[in-house]
Each structure stands twice: as C-alpha cells, then as structure tokens.
Design a protein around this nucleic acid. Sequence first.
DNA 1: AATGCTCCAGCTGAGC
DNA 2: GCTCAGCTGGAGCATT
Lengths: 224, 224, 224, 224
Amino acid sequence: MAGHAKAPKKGPRAQRTERNLGGGRNATGAGRLVGFIERLERLASEIDELKNDVKEVKAEAKAEGFDLKTIAALLKLRQLTDDERREREALLDLYKAAIGMLDGTPLGDAARRRFDGGKEPGDGDSGGDEDDGADDGVPRDGDLSAQPAAEEALAAARERGAADARAGVRVLQNPFTAGDPRRAAWDEGWCREKGSDGMDLPPAWRRRPSGNDKGDSGGAEAGA
Amino acid sequence: MAGHAKAPKKGPRAQRTERNLGGGRNATGAGRLVGFIERLERLASEIDELKNDVKEVKAEAKAEGFDLKTIAALLKLRQLTDDERREREALLDLYKAAIGMLDGTPLGDAARRRFDGGKEPGDGDSGGDEDDGADDGVPRDGDLSAQPAAEEALAAARERGAADARAGVRVLQNPFTAGDPRRAAWDEGWCREKGSDGMDLPPAWRRRPSGNDKGDSGGAEAGA
Amino acid sequence: MAGHAKAPKKGPRAQRTERNLGGGRNATGAGRLVGFIERLERLASEIDELKNDVKEVKAEAKAEGFDLKTIAALLKLRQLTDDERREREALLDLYKAAIGMLDGTPLGDAARRRFDGGKEPGDGDSGGDEDDGADDGVPRDGDLSAQPAAEEALAAARERGAADARAGVRVLQNPFTAGDPRRAAWDEGWCREKGSDGMDLPPAWRRRPSGNDKGDSGGAEAGA
Amino acid sequence: MAGHAKAPKKGPRAQRTERNLGGGRNATGAGRLVGFIERLERLASEIDELKNDVKEVKAEAKAEGFDLKTIAALLKLRQLTDDERREREALLDLYKAAIGMLDGTPLGDAARRRFDGGKEPGDGDSGGDEDDGADDGVPRDGDLSAQPAAEEALAAARERGAADARAGVRVLQNPFTAGDPRRAAWDEGWCREKGSDGMDLPPAWRRRPSGNDKGDSGGAEAGA
DNA sequence: AATGCTCCAGCTGAGC
DNA sequence: GCTCAGCTGGAGCATT
C-alpha cells in the first residue's frame, strides 16, 4: 500500500535520449550531459513516488479527522533540537510580552528559565518583592528549579491525569501549580486519555469550521 | 528615507514597447496586450520599491539587535484573528500533549478553555477529583472563568510586573497562579520593563549564538 | 483606480499596540520593537493593496481572452537584459541540441551567433563545405552578419508582414530566409496585424483547451 | 550508490514517541496520531536521502562545467508533453511577436504551424502575395509540410552536421533553409560533435561569467 | 476538474 | 569560509 507510485499523470519522460548514448561516446560532453539528466530524472521520479505516499498518508489522516495543518506544524517542531525549540519559544514569548500580545497565556517555562538562567537562585527576594496581595504560602515558580523533574514523578502525574480524565475531571482542574513540571505531565495524561474515547475522534481534535466572521472575541478587549 | 526605490538593479524593463502603441491601435489585441503588460510592470515596480523599504526596516531592526526571524513570526501571528490564533494554539497543544511533546510547558490557557468550553462552570467536582495530594487550598484553574479579566485588574498586574522588575524580582517569582489572567499581565509588565534598561538591547533580546552541539537536554530523557 | 485596497479580508492588524506606545518610551527596547512592527505592517498592507491591483489586472486580461501563464512568462523575460536572455537561450539551445531535443525547431539565432562569435567571418569555407546536395545559390546563415539589420529595413519588413497578413498570406509564407533579421520583423508585423481583427481576440491568441490525451505527435517520431 | 543518506545534520527526529505506543492503545486518537507522524517522518527522511543524492549529482555536473540552471530548464521541458511544449512555445512566440519582442529570432516552427493549422494549404496565394522582392525561387516555409520528415533524411542531416563540424564548418553555414526539418537535425549533429572535443567541456558549454554591466548589445538597436 | 493563490523550502548571492 | 537574508520555483489548497 505504500510503495507504488501511481505515476502522477505527468508527461512522457525519457523520450528519445537513447540514440544519443550510442557507441562509446559517453566521454563526450553530450554523452555526459545525457547521463546526468537521466540520473536526475530517475531520482526525481523516485522522489515523487514518495511524495505520493505522503499524500496518501495525509489523506488518510484527514479522513480520520486530524487537522493536517497542525500535523505539519508538529512535524516541523519535531525536527528541531530541543534547545533550538526552547530558544525560539523563549524569544517569541519575550517579544510577545513586550508588545502586549501575551493576552491571557503567560510566559512559557522556557522563557522564564532563559531570562533567569544567569542568576543565582538565592537572590530572588532582593528588592521589593513583599508579595503583598496575590497568594502567599503557595509554591512559586522559583520552586521550578527545586523539583528535579524526576521521571517517576512525571510518570505518576501523567497517570493521574489519565485517571482524572476518566473520572470526569476537567482540564481546568489540573492540580499542579504553574512552574511545576508535573503540571504539563498531568495535561499529557489527561489529553491522551481524552483522545481514546470511542472509535472516532472526539470533536475537540477536529478543526473548528473556522467561524468565518471574526469576532476578535479576545479575553482582553483592551486596545479598542 | 522611506519612499525611494533604489531600482534594484534589475534588467531594463520597458524596452521597446512604445512603438507598438503607435496610432490608435489600442483596440487591437496587440495593443491591449501591451497595455496589460505595462500596467503589470508598473505595479510590479511599485511593489518592489516597497519591498526595498521592508528590507531597510529589517536591516535597521537587525542592527539594533532584534532577531528577524522572531519578528517575522510575530508578524505572522498578528495577522491572525484572535480566534484563529487561539484555535491553532489549542489544537497544537492538544496534539503535542497527545504524543507527549509538551515536555515541561503545560497546556496553554487557550487549549484549556477550548476543551472545557461546553461545560458549565459549576460541576467541576463531579467525578473523583478529591484533590488529594497536590496543593489544596490554592485557587485552581477553575477560577479562571470566575475572574472576568477586568481590564483594570490586568492593568494593575501589568504595572506591578513592571515595578517588580525594577525592584529586581525575577520572572520566576510571578505572584499569580496558573490560570489567573493576571499572571500573563504581570509577565508583560515585567518584560516590557526589562527591555528598557539602557541605550541598547539587553542580551536576553538577542538571539543566542546557536549552541551548535545539540544537547537534547530535554526534561524527559526518555527516548534516547 | 489603482490605490484602493479592498482589504483582503485578512485579520485585524493593529490590534492593541497603541497603549504600548504610551509616554515617551520610544527609546525602550519594547517601544522600538513596536515601532518596527508597525512600520513593517504598514508596508505589508501597502504591498498587498498593490497585489490586489495586480489580481484585478490579471482578471481583466483573462476576461479578454489572454493566457495568464504566457503573460507571466513574458514579464519574466522582459526583466532580463537582452544579453542575459540571449545567453540563456543559446545555452538552452545548445544543450537541447546535444541531447537531441531540438526536434524540428532549429537553433535560435542567438545560439548560432554565440558559437561563432570568436571566429573571423571570412574563413567560412575552410573545411569540407562543398554544400553538395542541399540548396545552393541560396543565401546562407553566414549572411546574417553581412546584413547590418538597418532599422529601416526591419521596419519595412514589419510593414510588409502586416500588409501580407491583410492580403491573406499565411505565416508559413514568410519571404525571408533563416538568418535574415527581416524574417523576424516580418513575423512581428504579420502577428500584430492578425491580432487586430475585430472586437475580441482571435482564437489563436487563446489557450487551447488542453488536448487531454497526450499524443506525442512529434514531428520526429523517433524514439517511440 | 543511491541509498546512502548521510543524515543531513538535521535535528533529532524520533525523540520520544515510543512510550506513547505502549499497550494496545493504537486504536486511540493519540495512538493513531503517533502512527501517522511516524509514517510521515519516515517518508520525509527517505525523501531527503534522495534529495541529497540529487545534490550530489548536481555538484558533479557543475564540477564538469555544465550550467545547472540550464539543466534545470531542460528537465522541466522534458516533463512536458510534446504537445504542451509546442502549445506554450507557440503562444509565447505569438505574444512576443505582438509586442515586438521577437527581436532577431523568428517565430518558431511550432508557432508557424499552429497559426496555419486550420487553413487548407491551397489558398495561400489568395490576396497580394506576389512575393516581389525577397528571394524567389527558394523553397518557402510552405514546403515544411511537404517534407514528411522521413526519419532517414533527418538522420542523414544529423550525420552531415557532425561531419561538417569535424570539417570546420561553422554553425552559421547550416545548408538547410528555414522550415526544413533537416535544418534542426543538422544543428543537432553539429552541436553534439562539437561537444566531444577533448577531455573537458568546450567553453561554449559553460556559462558566460555574466558581464555584469549590461550593454543591451542587441542586434536590433531599435527602441532605444 | 481546472486554475489561480499562498505558502514553503531549497538555492543563490552577499556580508562578516 | 560560513552564515544569512532574499528569491525563485513547486506543491498544496481553495475556489469556481
């Protein structure tokens, strides 16, 4: 099912180069040219066999309800080094923050770590951080570095996320605070679980029809 | 300084069409063709004047230390409706979670809201969410919907972020919990403040040299 | 008529950067960033106004029966120097000849001149050119250089082409031999004349519906 | 030699999807997603192995002095049906003629045939074709259809071209008139022969350094 | 089903 | 010499 070309209807390659190869003229300029061209055409045809296969896979995925654009984004993400990805995310978050585009979504952990990378962990409270009104007594982001992200803890969190999902807990109820790596792990578990309901994809995995009229229904109706 | 073309050295457009326009032959096929071509070339030349201007602006930005690639990303983001942007982020986060690529960064708020959109806010505890071990007493994500994102509250948070930044507080010390919209606002204030230090850009805004050796320093050392 | 945008339905640019410009903070990193972004977006929007105009012109041309793809090719050709264009044509002809793809269409004049550039015009007969069977007494390509392409001669030929076209002469009856620059000029006149028939485009200017079945109806039925 | 990758230095694909495949969860949304992603990545990696091979071949060709851009053009040409190619050339020639861009190079045979296709061959002389001054007695283009392009005649012409080339005849001395299919065949023979001189490519096959200053050294100094 | 548009990625030329 | 921005060509997608 995966290795069969289908000859994308294109024109008749390999038309009439054969007679030019005649004799032992391969050392000739013309002969060598023909050689190159044929090698290139052969490679090209192999390539677009594979491209056809890609198309088939995509069609299949689409038929199951996945969003192709998102999958493409994923693939691009995956071929980045983790470091590169973090670097980009951090920079993007910083720039977004600077122009007030964060709207609602806080800085990613990558950005947080980046901007704090050079500092030593002890001097955090220097300055005026009396932490007055928000919610004291709660572990802050600073603890992020304190939790070594033990793989077993993460696995446990993931498992709990799955269990919670099964139990009907909503995503918003993630029990871990910001900055805790288990927060992400719980999310992973929850999401993976939610994707497995029945035979076909739950609607959350599908792309919304688009809502062609754009409402700018931003959470922060600020600028206007 | 911004509207002056510089004639990108390209070839001699408008070579010898003039004589064809002779007479009143504009009703002719040939005449009309020439007309179209000239209009198109004129538009094209105006377009690449503007492209030149773009180049200049980019060069200037780069000279000040900004990362062009990130700026490009920003621009692309900004020409999306807020809804569209949220939709994509949500979907991407979901897919990432499903294949375990979240590593460390939790689901964005957009994703959280999306998957919870249909539910009514009151039934959060349905199921087994006894909230056993994590960190009780702390406002959860569920409160996210409870806080109507009053613009003045956000502005205050932003201001506090800026003040904290001035006072030496680190980003990691963001006093607001996950799910609280003020968390993002505080980040915005902090970041904007940090960008204003001296004459030139703080190093955090510049792109890291690259780190050519790929470390895969992922939080989850799994696959390797 | 050329500067009216029509707002290509894209998203709401310029969302909420205004507040960030507040105060005299323009010297700030964030402020400068916003400045760059706004300049870039403004330029971008101007650019796609122009792109819209291009679209309109193309639509108009298509409506009159012209083939857009051909027009695009023309535009690309026209932004090449004459020298560059000749260089490319010559090289392409040479390569085509070498692999036997000329089929039917002889080397262009550009190619001929290129390969003969270094030689002095007098020694043409050196070697075995006894010209045995073909068609003696006829002016050869060699004369190409002998005719200095006087502009008035070309104009005359063009005029004669137009006259002949009006008189019902077919293209195939071009009275000038290969290598004579007037041959092309006559063609020009003939074609331009033929395009002027009535109100709308003669069918020869339109693209043929496609001929979906590929016949390889080559003049040289060789390779097959 | 065609299947050896060389791992184009890209990032660490296939990072940590394995654990997600655990259990028999393949029916799950998440599991299927992982499956698709892995298939796509596998195909992608095969594709860029081939692309690497292409790059190698091109590098080799370039090292021997061939012009890559011309080769690319050839490849594109070759994946067109003969009919399509002819159609495009004809249309392009017609449009060029109409706006006076033919300069020097006459209409290709394809164009000539196209515009004469519908007509019956007998009525050519209708009108004023007294053929007054040019060069009577010489076979005209009209004979083009009269010569059935017998393959053996073409082969002979090709052979003669090669022989003439060996004998020192210049390209300009092509003994066949315009419209005679043997003209192209002779060119083919001549060019192929010329390409075979010594070990390396004759300079005519290389790309001219470009002549950065544009001279518009056109044969027809017309419009200017 | 055909076609025009848009995006993306590879290739090319410059600049440090 | 390497990197990086610009550009060109192709492929997918939406549209009619």
